Structure formats: C-alpha cells, structure tokens
Amino acid sequence: MSDGAQSTERTAAAQRRAVRNRYARIATADDHESEDCCSDTGGCCGDSTSTGGSEKLGYDDADQHAVAEGADLGLGCGNPTVLASLEAGETVLDLGSGAGFDCFLAAREVGESGRVLGVDMTPEMVEKARENISKNEATNVEFRLGEIEHLPVSDETVDVVISNCVINLSPDKPQVFREAFRALKPGGRVAVSDVVMTAPLPAEVRSDPESVSACVGGASTVDELRAMLSAAGFVDVEITPKDESREFIREWDDSVALDEYIVSATISATKPAQGE
C-alpha cells in the first residue's frame, strides 16, 4: 500500500473514531443532563438545547408528540420523513439512525404492513434506539449496528433510504451512495436532509476530525453530491439548499459564522426501475 493510501486510511479511521466518540457521549448522557454536543468544536447537526429545537428543523408538534421521550435528540438538520412522502407498506432504511426519532416517525407513516430499519455505527446509540422501541410500541422497527459504507442489508430490499445530517460524516461518501443504491429496489428512492458547503471551509476546519464529527468539516458542495449520486447510478437527482437553515446553523458555534460556509439541503434521487 502506498504512503498516500495509508495516510488516507489513517485519516478515515480518525474521522470514524471522532464521530463514534461524540455520539457515544450524546447517547449515554443522562436524560436530566443537557449534553452540549456542540461544546468541542461547534456544530453537531443541530442541538436539542438550541432555541426552537426540532421545530426549526421542520418537525411540527404532531411529530414531536408522536414519539416517546428519549428518541428526539435534536441532532438533525431537516426532516427527511416529509421529503420521503412515505406510503403504507413501504420498507424504509435510515442511515445513521441515532436514537431512532426519524425511524419512529417513518413507522407511523408506513403502518403495520411496512417496515423500518435503522443502521448506526455507534453501539451506544443502537442500544438507546432499541430501548426506545418498547417505549414507542414500534413492532415494525429494527435497529442494526453497522457502518453506512457497508450496510448490513440485503440487495434490493428497501423502498426508501432516508438520512438526517449523517452522510456528511462519512469519509467515503461515494461508497455510501453505492450502498444505498444496492439496498434499494428498482424504482426505489433516496430522501435525505444534510448539510452542503456553499463556500470553501478554512483548511483547519476541513482537516480536523472533530470538526468532521460536528457535521461541518465533511460537507460537500451541491455539484460534488450530484456527481456522487449520478456515479452511483441514481437518476432524477434534486438537491435544494435551504437558505432559512442559516438561522439554526448560526447557533452551532458562537466563535465561527458557520452559516457563511454551510447550509442544510434536501437531497432526493431515484434508482431506475427495471428496464430503464
């Protein structure tokens, strides 16, 4: 293996370790504690302690009251379940499912005839999510431990892939989209909320594993994401930055004006149906 390849592997491992450590801390924080996930380097894909909470991310009162306490950690940057337009009977896969909030909302939409599968690489988050299954009486939800670059899911078994401010955390985003494509049935779709880069990040931010774990340093541009999705085989790619997201992104870090570099966006794409 070349020195460059070894250096890339070390960087990817450091990023995964930083992400896993950050979200393990969040998952194991006592319910009565206010775990400030933004305290290390800034942003954290949202923060439930920020003013406005999940309402700013696109969740209404009905969404928040539909899920038992403990699943909504306020860690997203949008509401992918709205973008997905889920239907009864569909199978949904959530990449980076955390404590399960979006999974439980999706379960409500797909009904008893549907199924929701969450995948997360942090053991503490998977444990917390599994505990939340009984709290929400969600018989059609399952959580698995795994990396989103190597999904523990069979080929062509899901109708919809959702994700909420997680793909930016991956050191190999093209592989994430290839795996999503593999898992989707022909005609299946992607519905993702994530951050996109609107201006070049300072070098010290972009190369810092802790900044990557905070949903900042790993952001890609719209053009880069579109190219990744197309290369994976997706069609009808739509990426729409949300200018209004600057309001809550500005709160992720008091020392850096992050809204000058990143915004939230909705990302949708389709796997071609058979014969197309």
Rank of each mutant, 00 (worst) to 15 (best):
P186A: 14
Y23Q: 06
A231P: 04
N79A: 07
D243V: 15
F143A: 05
S113K: 07
E90L: 00
A71Q: 00
A214N: 14
P272H: 12
A203M: 07
F248P: 01
G187V: 07
R144H: 11
A12L: 07
G96A: 05
G70Q: 06
I267D: 11
T266N: 15
A265W: 08
A88K: 04
R115Q: 14
G46P: 01
S34M: 05
D253W: 02
L169I: 13
L117T: 03
A62M: 11
I249Q: 08
L258P: 06
V126L: 04
S207E: 11
G218L: 03
L184K: 00
V158G: 07
T91L: 04
E124F: 08
E244K: 02
V216T: 15
I267Q: 13
D194E: 14
R115H: 14
A191V: 05
D63T: 10
D47P: 00
D254N: 09
E149L: 03
G146Q: 04
L95A: 14
C77E: 06
Q64L: 13
A5T: 15
E247I: 10
I262L: 11
P171F: 07
S39I: 03
G74P: 02
D47L: 01
A199C: 10
S85P: 02
C37Q: 09
S48Y: 10
A68I: 06
E260T: 14
T221K: 14
G217L: 02
L86K: 03
S97A: 15
G58S: 10
T28I: 07
D159M: 05
E238M: 13
S2T: 15
A14N: 11
E238G: 15
M1F: 11
G275V: 05
P241T: 14
E87T: 15
F143D: 00
G42M: 00
T41W: 02
L229C: 13
A180M: 13
V153H: 05
R206W: 08
E179G: 10
D94R: 02
F101K: 01
D236A: 15
K56W: 08
N164M: 08
K135V: 11
A29S: 09
P174W: 13
G58K: 02
